[in-house]
Design a protein around this nucleic acid. Structure first.
Length: 586
RNA sequence: UGAGGAUUAGUGCAACGGUAGCACGCCUGACUCUGGAUCAGGUAAUCUUGGUUCGAAUCCAAGAUCCUCAGCCA
């Protein structure tokens, strides 16, 4: 039943949770099936496809994949895997003027990275162009399609409205011979773009506009990324899609809600030529709070320089999330948890972050990094001594082992871990107060050094040698444990902090005359330089993920070089102190 | 005012005529060498109005609200 694991999909972490029962109570996974799987079960009971299940992910290569596509990929691949079926990756590349090889490559990379294994089934609709042409000819021969000389404006005028039927084209009743001749000459390049189309002859009075003699082939003298200049007529989506599914033996053609109105046409076209007929099923696309998901808007953000490219870590694109430090496992778990339904919904971004943290918490090696350094001098610690303290790499995973972290007289701690006049709920360092330096000693603040401007530039502390390792033999407690790095041994790093790209929960919800870009968060990117990190991080390379203790999850950005370490903040840790602060602010 | 869909805690998803449940979020508390994690508890929902039924989120009727469709885009 379960096909081979792929691309980092470990046996104990299946593509999604459906295959296992991970109930903490030891019970079975009683999660009910989504409506699509129920339909498939019904088909299997009735023998509709002979127990066969074959799905596909059919992107148009005209942009980068985003988290919404991940939902579709997980759904389609997950179903194929659960039912012991197959999953295809197929590019729906029927419009040469919009599609590019760059997108093909990025999409393949992203689908693989997500762990959806299409094995050797990578297809292109453009490879079926000959077959599509045959189907078109067949339609003409059976009197179900005709060449129409109306231009696009005229077609629109004759289409009618939502409440009024359309008018039949004057070319609707051409003879089969004439249609055949004209269509062949369209293919031969005798006519300019837009001068003629091939239309399905259905019903101009249909209440479903998609059935009012839809255009199925248009003339486009354009170079196609795959077929070059071989064709100057290209099939429309509605015409091509069902045949693509049919040719590949797809059983369940899963798409988003807006295609529901197209299903009658999908069915009509397949039946009109007597082709194998898959079942189209529609589900609601994913929407996420604080972000936009349409290709148009994402492209706009990239083109207008609102972000730094498709893989900007603030983008909801797969490559953006990857660069940000998201794991495929976290994204898959998210897709599993949001479920599948026909209700249009907006999922809370917090759920994505929850899935992320859950995964990262379990697997990220810990490290200490000071983002906003404040120098600390331990007055009673010897000048030339450097001690190696033992630190745990991952408290969630004993097998991750321990490491040595150098401790010395001069250190850096986080600026926000000290307050000269601490409010009641502030547990960290303050004048006269004792705290623990993680894995090191208890230290007490005995002095504050300021510059002429009155800014704190240095803290003077004393340490208790008896607390080495972090515990006091006399049993006394401290309320806080701070992270730190040795000033002598720390290495510099750049850290990029990210926040939501938009300040509005639903940026698409804009009043008349306004633009979603007005809600762009001006503070979505904050670049910190001069951060001080543990020397052990010197060998970290692009993509490596860490938890900087108490600060969040970070990963090394591809911009990182041997000279300059650059980290992206993937997510913050949950922060109850920040919450307390926020509440007192309000 | 055509056609096709949708409507259950703040959010997302279940319950398929028989006690409305799970997750996230939020709020308490416990524990803690990460104010993390973990653990325990709490919060909160069937669009409306009728009807059928011993019993309705579920069936029926009427209504409300929202989404999609008038590209030679997908």
């Amino acid at each position: 039943m379960n096909p081979t694991p792929n691309d980092g999909v470990k046996a104990e972490s299946p593509f999604d949770g459906r295959a296992n029962s991970d109930g903490a109570d030891g019970g079975e996974d009683v999660r009910s099936k989504d409506f699509i799987r129920e339909i498939i079960d019904e088909h299997n009971r009735a023998g509709r496809f002979g127990q066969r299940v074959h799905t596909r992910f059919p992107p148009e290569p005209n942009g980068y994949l985003h988290i919404g596509h991940a939902k579709s990929i997980c759904l389609n691949y997950g179903i194929a895997r659960d039912y012991g079926g197959k999953f295809n990756l197929r590019f729906d590349d029927t419009n040469p003027v919009k599609e590019e090889t760059e997108y093909v490559e990025s999409i393949i990379e992203d689908v693989r990275w997500l762990g959806a294994d299409f094995e050797d089934r990578l297809f292109f609709a453009s490879n079926y162009f000959d077959k599509f042409y045959e189907y078109a000819v067949q339609l003409i021969k059976s009197g179900k399609a005709y060449v129409c000389d109306l231009n696009s404006d005229e077609v629109r005028e004759q289409r009618g409205t939502l409440t009024q039927p359309g008018k039949e084209s004057p070319y609707r009743n051409r003879s089969v011979t004439e249609n055949l001749d004209l269509f062949e000459r369209m293919k031969a390049g005798e006519f300019p773009d837009g001068s003629r189309t091939l239309r399905a002859k259905i019903d101009m009075a249909s209440p479903n506009l998609n059935m009012r003699d839809p255009v199925i082939y248009r003339i486009l003298h354009a170079t196609h990324h795959n077929t070059g200049d071989k064709w100057c007529i290209y099939p429309m989506y509605d015409f091509a899609h069902g045949y693509e599914d049919s040719i590949e033996g797809i059983t369940h053609s899963i798409c988003t809600l807006e295609f529901e109105n197209h299903r009658p046409l999908y069915d009509w076209l397949l039946d009109a030529v007597g082709a194998y007929h898959p079942q189209q099923i529609e589900f609601a696309r994913l929407n996420l709070t604080y972000t936009v998901m349409s290709k148009r808007r994402l492209l706009e953000l990239v083109k207008e320089g609102k972000v730094n490219g498709w893989d900007d870590p603030r983008m909801p694109t797969i490559c953006g999330l990857r660069r940000r430090g998201y794991t495929p496992e976290a994204i898959r778990e998210f897709c599993r948890r949001i479920g599948v339904a026909k209700t249009e919904s907006v999922v809370d971004f917090a759920l994505l972050e929850h899935c992320l943290r859950q995964d990262l918490n379990a697997r990220s090696p810990r490290s200490m990094a000071v983002l906003n350094p404040l120098k600390v001098v331990i007055e009673n610690y010897p000048e030339d001594v450097i001690e190696e303290m033992d630190a745990v790499n991952n408290p969630e995973d004993a097998s991750a082992g321990t490491r040595k972290v150098p401790f010395s007289r001069e250190l850096y701690i986080e600026r926000e871990d000290f307050m000269e006049e601490p409010p009641k709920k502030f547990f960290r360092l303050a004048p006269g107060r004792e705290v623990r330096l993680r894995y090191a000693y208890f230290v007490k603040c005995v002095g504050v050094v300021k510059n002429d401007a009155g800014e704190i530039v240095e803290l003077r502390c004393t340490y208790d040698p008896a607390t080495r390792g972090g515990d006091a033999p006399d049993g006394r407690k401290v309320k806080a444990t701070l992270h730190w790095v040795s000033a002598a041994k720390a290495i510099d790093a750049e850290v990029r902090l990210y926040d939501q790209l938009f300040t509005k929960e639903d940026p698409g919800d804009v009043p008349e005359g306004h633009d979603y870009k007005e809600y762009l968060n001006p503070n979505s990117l904050q670049v910190l330089t001069g951060c001080k990190v543990e020397p052990g991080l010197a060998s970290a390379g692009p993509g490596d993920r860490f938890q900087f203790e108490r600060m969040g999850y970070f990963c090394v950005d591809p911009d990182s070089t041997g000279e300059r370490l650059v980290f992206n903040r993937t997510a913050t840790l949950k922060d109850t102190w920040a919450k307390v602060q926020k509440q007192t602010d309000e």
